[in-house]
């Protein structure tokens, strides 16, 4: 049960939040002028990396505000939380333990018990 730091309410239990999928998926400005493929990518396609992942959360059982987070999907550690209006942080801004794609973190994935 994660603790998520809502930028407005402070750190709260994960059960108060709903995950909102991948972040920074921008709605095309002129939908009528883009190809079916590009539109389908906006509607249906999302990335699924192992490692650094930018995603959205909404504090559905709290202030009901949306915000973004950076989470390491191999260990579930939430590295950074930032508001919807803030700029997207670059990977080099935080100490990332593993590089995407693939690779097993030294500790914290829960997939093995003995030190490698």
């Amino acid at each position: 049960m994660l603790i998520i730091n809502c930028p407005y309410c402070g750190p709260r239990d994960q059960c108060e939040f709903t995950n909102g999928g991948e972040a920074h998926v921008t709605r095309p400005k002129n939908p009528e002028n883009i190809s079916d493929q590009m539109w389908a990518e906006y509607v249906f396609f999302r990335s699924n990396p192992k490692g650094i992942y930018y995603e959205r959360w909404v504090h559905s059982h709290g202030c009901k505000k949306w915000f973004n987070s950076v989470r390491d999907t191999s260990t579930d550690e939430i590295i950074k939380v930032y508001k919807i209006i803030d700029k997207k942080p670059l990977p080099k801004e935080f100490k990332n333990k593993i590089k995407t794609p693939s690779g097993e973190p030294k500790v914290g994935s829960g997939n093995f018990t003995v030190k490698k």
Binding site: T75, K106, V107, G108, S109, G110, F112, T113, V114, K115, K116
Partner: peptide, 14 residues
């Protein structure tokens, strides 16, 4: 808690 273990050769245990 997702910590990792190590083998102890003296006490023969993890």
């Amino acid at each position: 808690s997702k910590g990792v273990l190590i083998w102890d050769d003296q006490y023969l245990t993890f």
